[in-house]
Design a protein around this nucleic acid. Sequence first.
DNA 1: TGCATTCATTGATGATTGTCAATACAATGA
DNA 2: TCATTGTATTGACAATCATCAATGAATGCA
Lengths: 112, 112
Amino acid sequence: MTPANNFFCCADSDPHSLEEDQAAVLSKVFSALADPVRLQIYACIAATDEICSCNLEGPVGKSQPTISHHTAKLASAGLIVGEKRGRWMWWRVVPGMAEAALNTIRGFTPSR
Amino acid sequence: MTPANNFFCCADSDPHSLEEDQAAVLSKVFSALADPVRLQIYACIAATDEICSCNLEGPVGKSQPTISHHTAKLASAGLIVGEKRGRWMWWRVVPGMAEAALNTIRGFTPSR
DNA sequence: TGCATTCATTGATGATTGTCAATACAATGA
DNA sequence: TCATTGTATTGACAATCATCAATGAATGCA
C-alpha cells in the first residue's frame, strides 16, 4: 500500500491482531529459547530419547546450579518435561511445543 | 533409555549438536520474539502488506522511541525490513525468517 | 544409621533490557 | 531559509537475567 499523498502515510486502522495475554504466553516460549545455553541444552535433550541433568553439564560447560536454572526455565515454558527416577532427573522434549509456536507465528499472516 | 544400573545414569557421551556460534545466531532471532510488545508489533506488520512506524504506536500503546527501539531489534534479527520513503518508515516482514528459526529447532530431533 | 551423590534453592553480583523524556537528525513544504 | 513532521539516538532508571558459591533436600548404598 503506497501512500495516497504526502500528508498521511495510510489509514489509521487498527491492525492489532495479537491480544496481550496471547503475546505473554508466546513470549514466554520464545524467552526460553532466547539464550544460547538453553538452546544447547534443548538440542542435547532433543538429540537423545532422554538425558539426565548430570550429562548436560559437560557438553554445555556450565555449573550444576546454572543447568538446573535453565532446565527449569525450559520446563516452565512447556518445551521439556522432567521425571525424577531415583537420584537422577531425566529430561525429554515436548515435541509439539515449538510447532505450536510456529503455527501461531504463521497465523499472523492471513494470506498464505 | 533406562539406566542399566544405579551407579551410572547413562553413558557419558557427547550429545552436543549445536555449535556456540549457531546458538548465538538462533538466540538472537528468538530474543527478538521474546517480548510481548515486539510480538504485537510483528503481528501488526504481518497483518498488512506494509505499515509505517507511526501506525504502530496506537495499537501497541507505547511511545515513539520505544517503537523505534523494538522495530530496530526485530530488523537486526532479520525478522522485518524497513524502507524509508519520504518522511515515513515502512516495515514489512521477512516471510521465511521465523519459519527458518523454528525449523532449526525441529531439526534437533533426528527421528521424526 | 551414616555417608556419598544428584538436584534444587538461596544469596549475591555484574550485565542486559524495556521504557520514556529530551534531544538530534532527516525530509518535506512554504 | 525556516518551520513542521516522522524517526532515530541519548541518557537515565528500574527490572530482569545469567552465573556461581554455598547450602539444603532427597535418594541410594553400605
